[in-house]
Nucleic acid binder design. Sequence first.
DNA 1: CGATGTGTTGACCGGGTTCAAACAATGTGG
DNA 2: CCACATTGTTTGAACCCGGTCAACACATCG
Lengths: 254, 254
Amino acid sequence: MLTTATAARAPQMPAAAQGWRDNQQASRRIADALHTLQDKLPIQRRVVHAGDKIYQAGDAFGCLHVVHSGIFKIINSAADGREQVVGFHFKGDWLGFDGIAAGQYGCDAVAMDTGEVWSFRYQALFEACAQHPELLSLLHEAMSREISRDRESLLSLCTLSADARVADFLRYWAESLAQRGLRTDQITLRLTRAEIGNYLGMKLETVSRAMSRLARDKVIQFSERGRRDVQIPDVAALSAFVQRSLTPAGETLQ
Amino acid sequence: MLTTATAARAPQMPAAAQGWRDNQQASRRIADALHTLQDKLPIQRRVVHAGDKIYQAGDAFGCLHVVHSGIFKIINSAADGREQVVGFHFKGDWLGFDGIAAGQYGCDAVAMDTGEVWSFRYQALFEACAQHPELLSLLHEAMSREISRDRESLLSLCTLSADARVADFLRYWAESLAQRGLRTDQITLRLTRAEIGNYLGMKLETVSRAMSRLARDKVIQFSERGRRDVQIPDVAALSAFVQRSLTPAGETLQ
DNA sequence: CGATGTGTTGACCGGGTTCAAACAATGTGG
DNA sequence: CCACATTGTTTGAACCCGGTCAACACATCG
């Protein structure tokens, strides 16, 4: 149906209001998608807790999964033991696409807190797609979004300094929450510094230092109870920080 | 149909022969896929030359493309001017998946040499998929493979040293050629050191130094006519180099 | 309480960047 | 044909960002 996720912009609208509308739309899209799925497919629901594995690299592929609640991390582990967090998945995101071509999953999918995943046989989805084009649309858009997201990761990995990468990560995280209708001014990271560092291609000490600097610059703020809780008064300030750190000198590039 | 790209292994087979069989299979799969596509869909063929853009970030999405010959690079450009090469596409690879969800392409796709792309309306493919499940299978496997490949990139970006990344890149490039039935002992890189560096998240000088070291270690060899031509007598030696550089000290980890 | 896991901060070091110079390959125009 | 410009590659030297190692703070939990 070629439905677009973000409709044509309204340039005369203030940026903040625009962002809010986008998030509303995203939230709506996700809710609709989950609704469509449970209408059209036999679904296996499963409640999971922190540390539970939805699937592991090497497991025979047969099912795709959709996050109904909770947050999940995807870990790509090489044969030689290297482990790399390659992505995080929130409500409405799909899990397991990498298994389709290979016939087996290529990564581990691990729950980071209590949540619920919906699973269904890929075969069943495949057949249902022929009957219900909207289902096919859903699937393709989800895969497309995943590809785009991975490329964003590559971009920030290759072009940003460590501090900027951390800022960009927090922006991404807050954005992801906002798109699910959750508050972002006060978020609880369910990751250790080591996990963040792994994802961002840096060491935990560097993450810690970067966050301290962000706090010193008032871009973020630590909650009084624990350094895992981060207050982000203004998400746009994180983007601004990233931009600022792109131009070391005050380049007046107009 | 849940067809798997790489069938069950035959463990008693020598690794080299196994690799050769895998490449044969891949080559066959690609040829079959192209065949299926032109059978089932109205295709727009287009010959392109080095530098030609198949599409640009921001262009309205409407078509998907498949590489029939030549090599293409995908460039993700941020609003602030950062440009990042996020992937290379060879014969049989698809272009444009990132446009499905957003309604517009998110990257540029640029030809690196003379080649041919097959394009078709996403809408037409979408409708044909309902009739021809094998078409849908093709599409999903291609998207799945793309996601897996991006994650491989993330893994090597985050876990490998500069030298190892260059070695791994050459291995990937040779492997990609081998899977298309092309020779790998003597390849001509159609990229500058700067482009390789951009893709690998390092500067061109670092690429140059890394390649000099690889040549000094006899893992690769420069052709007499120009440093763009690289001879790879043994692709496995590149993998071995990567593994070697993982363990700085001689860790006898059994 | 000690034990364990996590986060912060400092001091030092090294791999990769930056800056610079020289060289190679290719093309252009006289 | 050579002089010259252009673009890409190589290599050296100095510098710096982020890694490494270490000490300490601060939770939670048995």
